[in-house]
Simulated scan of single mutants.
Amino acid sequence: MNKLSSAVRLALSVGAVAGMGVVGTAYAQDQASQQPSEQKAQSLETIVVTGSRIRRVDLETANPVFAIDRAQIQQSGKVTLGDLVQEAPSIAGAAQNPQVNNGGGDGASTVSLRGLGAQRTLVLINGHRIIQSPSAGGVDINQIPANLVERIEVLKDGASAVYGSDAIGGVVNIILRSNYQGAEFSADYGISDRNDGERRGFSATFGQTGDKGSVIAGINYNKFDPISSADRDFAKDATYLYSGSVIKLGSSRNPNGRIFLPAGDPTRTALGCSSVTKLPGTDGTSRADYRCYSGATDSFNYQRLNLILTPQERTSAFALANYQL
């Protein structure tokens, strides 16, 4: 009995020690298996840093964003941002550009999203507002050299709740190049098939990048010759829309003047018309110097003096640097 009880006690002691060893090993393996999962969970965390409140990924925002990257800018052959941006389908309305000189014509190009006006479209550079041009009624994006731009983000929906009333039409965010290393040169020349509208330009860009920061600098030059409306058949005559028909008719404010005669005036009674104009080459001192005004022959064709392309010459120098403290 003593031997039997001793054997039983020995067996129970060995089993308890073995059980503790198994439990300890299982606990160690469980701890080891949890450590990689915790590290993996930490590696899945992401931080998105953008230069503005415009989100670049359409799946992460409820607002549509249209982007133009640097490759598209180079492939377009456009030498100014105005010519490039105004070709986007979301740009509509009477946005000013060098091809519109009625009430403008200073070479500026503005952005009017959805036709709501340039003053209701917010333009940003790297997420920061820039000063609007008083003469253009908005931001002249031609003042930004095309060789300095990395991409252009266009928020095609109203964002007045975020940016204010100047973003009712939308937001255009121009992202400038950074961390550029090297140098590049480009030249441009073009002329129309009528041997007018000649354009020439060149640009140079230099950049240096280090561990703590980068610097980019360059120069941009463009010159455009004018194109007169009188040299194109589709633009040489002032046209008006009356009763569904397009007719050629100029302004009644002509160089010889138009005088409206009151009822009972002797000249009105004698000529049988309510308005007269001065005959060319006369001094207008006598009644014989005037005849009845006719819109078909006496109206002033102002289109002969208008321009299809406004002449302009631009020189831009730029430098952009950043350093990480």
Rank of each mutant, 00 (worst) to 15 (best):
A92L: 15
A92R: 14
A92W: 03
A92Y: 07
G93R: 04
G93K: 02
G93A: 01
A94F: 10
A94N: 14
A95S: 13
A95M: 04
Q96A: 12
N97H: 06
N97F: 02
P98T: 00
P98G: 05
P98Y: 05
Q99K: 10
Q99E: 12
Q99D: 11
Q99M: 11
Q99L: 02
V100I: 13
V100F: 14
V100N: 14
V100E: 04
N101V: 12
N101T: 13
N101K: 03
N101Y: 06
N101R: 06
N101F: 03
N102E: 02
N102G: 15
N102K: 07
G103R: 06
G103E: 02
G103T: 02
G103F: 07
G103Y: 06
G104Y: 13
G104L: 04
G104F: 13
G104E: 06
G104T: 04
G105N: 12
G105A: 11
G105H: 07
D106R: 11
G107I: 03
G107R: 11
G107A: 11
G107L: 05
A108V: 06
A108H: 10
A108Y: 12
A108C: 06
S109M: 04
S109D: 03
S109V: 03
S109W: 06
T110G: 13
T110S: 11
T110L: 08
T110Q: 08
V111M: 08
V111L: 14
V111H: 09
V111W: 06
V111G: 10
S112I: 01
S112C: 02
S112N: 09
L113F: 12
L113R: 12
L113G: 09
L113W: 13
R114S: 14
R114T: 09
R114A: 11
R114N: 13
R114K: 10
G115L: 10
G115V: 04
G115Q: 07
L116V: 12
G117Q: 03
G117S: 08
G117M: 01
A118V: 10
A118Y: 10
A118R: 07
A118M: 08
A118H: 08
Q119L: 07
Q119K: 08
Q119W: 00
Q119M: 11
Q119T: 14
Q119C: 04
R120Y: 15
R120F: 15
T121E: 01
T121R: 06
L122N: 09
L122K: 15
L122A: 05
L122I: 04
V123D: 00
V123E: 00
V123G: 01
L124K: 00
L124Q: 01
